[in-house]
Design a protein around this nucleic acid. Structure first.
Lengths: 216, 216
DNA sequence: GATATAGTAGACCGGTCGGTCAAGAAGGAG
DNA sequence: CTCCTTCTTGACCGACCGGTCTACTATATC
C-alpha cells in the first residue's frame, strides 16, 4: 500500500560513492540528497540519521563486494594460492577503475570508515569489526584449502588470514598516500610470502595465474 | 624582540593528540585552542589555517617518531631482522599506551590522516606521501643490512620495504577496527615472512629478541 | 623610557552542518 | 470513490564550523 520508490537505494548508492571518494565528514546529508536527487525530508523518511545511512551503506557494500565478489574468488574453482593472487589483482584493478571514475585513489571504503570513525562512533566501529571478521574468514577458507592441497605448510590459518587482511588494508592506505594504485601493483603477489608459501609454491601459483590470464 | 611564548608548541601538541584520538574533521580549531589554553586570536597568529597546523603537526610528529625513534631502531646495533621485530613490538606497545591514555585504539596518526584527507587535501596528501617514502627508506636500510649479513636472500629491498610499511599501516587499521592492539600482537612477527626470511633466519631472530628481552 | 614587535583577548561573521516539521501528492486496498 | 499509507517537498532550526578583526598587553632593543 502507498507508493513505492527507489529513493532509498539511490541514497545508499550516492552516499557510498561520495564517502568512498572523499570522506564521511566531508560529504554532508544535503550533498548526498542532491546527488541522489532526493529531498531532505525524504532522506529522513528513510533514515533516522546520517549514521543510520552509514550502516545501510556498509551492509549494502559488503553484500556486493564481500558476499558477492570476494567470496566467489576465495571459494572458487582456482587452486587456493591462485585465488589469493586473483584477489590482489582484482583489488588493484578496482582501484584503477575507481581512480578513473573519481579522479583520485580512494582505497578501501570499509577501511576508510574504520580509520575515520573507529574512535568516534562505537556502533559503526563494531559493525566494521564484524565485517573484517567475515572478510578474514573468507581468506582463511582459501588458506585451509591450500593447506589441504599441500601448497602451504601446516600453520594457524586464522592468524595468517588476519595478517593478509591487514596487508590488504595497508595497501589501501599506501596507494591513497601515493594517489597511484599502479605503484603497488608489484606488492600484490607478496601476499604469498605472508601466507607462508615456499618459493616453489609461489612459482607454481604465479605460473598458474599467467596460464589463466593467457587462456582468457 | 617582542615576547616569546610556547603557545605554538602547545597547539601542535594538542592538535596532534586530539586528531590522533578522534579525527581531523571531528576536532575543530576551537576545541584545540581550549585544550591548549590558547585563544582563537593567538591560533591565527601562529597558523594561517587549520590545514597549516596539520602540516606543522605532521612535521613535528615525524621528527619525534620517525627521525627519532624509528630511525634509531632501524639503523641501530641489533641484528637487522631483530630490528624489524623490535619495530613491530614497539608499535604494539605504543598503541597499548595510547589506548590506556585515550580510552580507545587509535592506530597510526599518519595513516589516519592519509585515509581521512588523502583525497580531500592534495597538499597534505603529498606531504604524507613523502613521509611514507622516508619511512620505507628506513625499513629498507635494515633490509639491506640483513641482505649484507646473509640473513635475507638477494631481493628488491625497496619493494619489500614498501610492502612492510603497508603491512604496518594495515595493522593500524585492523587494531582500530577491533579496538584492541593486543589482538594482533601475534601478527607482528609475521613481518619476517613478508621480508622473505627463511624459517631458520626467523628462528634465529626470534631467539635473539628473546635473549635481548631476557637480558633487560 | 620610547618604540616596535610578538603575542593575547574575545567578540564577531557568514556559511554549513545534521536534523525537524507541516503540508500535500501518489497510489494500492476496500 | 474513499481511506490509509508511503513518499515528497522545501522552508526552517539551533549549533557549530573555520576564520576575521580590533583593541590590548607584555617584552626585548635602542
Amino acid at each position: 500500500m502507498g507508493r513505492q520508490s527507489d529513493a532509498r537505494d539511490r541514497l545508499i548508492r550516492s552516499a557510498g560513492d561520495l564517502w568512498h571518494s572523499r570522506s564521511y565528514a566531508d560529504v554532508g546529508v544535503s550533498e548526498i540528497c542532491e546527488h541522489a536527487e532526493v529531498q531532505k525530508g525524504s532522506f529522513y523518511h528513510f533514515f533516522a540519521s546520517k549514521r543510520d545511512l552509514a550502516l545501510a551503506v556498509i551492509d549494502d557494500g559488503w553484500q556486493r563486494v564481500g558476499v558477492g565478489e570476494i567470496a566467489r574468488i576465495m571459494t572458487g574453482p582456482l587452486p587456493p594460492l591462485e585465488r589469493l593472487l586473483t584477489l590482489m589483482d582484482r583489488g588493484i584493478e578496482v582501484q584503477m577503475q575507481l581512480k578513473e571514475a573519481c579522479g583520485c585513489t580512494v582505497g578501501c571504503s570499509f577501511g576508510n570508515l574504520v580509520v575515520e570513525l573507529g574512535t568516534v562512533d562505537e556502533v559503526l566501529r563494531e559493525r566494521l569489526a564484524r565485517l573484517f571478521d567475515d572478510w578474514a574468514a573468507l581468506i582463511q577458507h582459501a588458506l585451509d584449502d591450500a593447506v589441504d592441497a599441500g601448497d602451504l605448510p601446516q600453520t594457524d590459518t586464522g592468524q595468517t588470514a588476519r595478517a593478509i587482511l591487514a596487508y590488504i588494508q595497508g595497501l589501501g592506505v599506501v596507494i591513497k598516500a601515493r594517489d597511484d594504485p599502479q605503484a603497488v601493483a608489484d606488492l600484490g603477489p607478496m601476499v604469498l610470502r605472508l601466507a607462508g608459501a615456499d618459493p616453489a609454491a609461489v612459482a607454481r601459483a604465479a605460473a598458474g595465474v599467467t596460464r589463466t590470464a593467457a587462456a582468457v
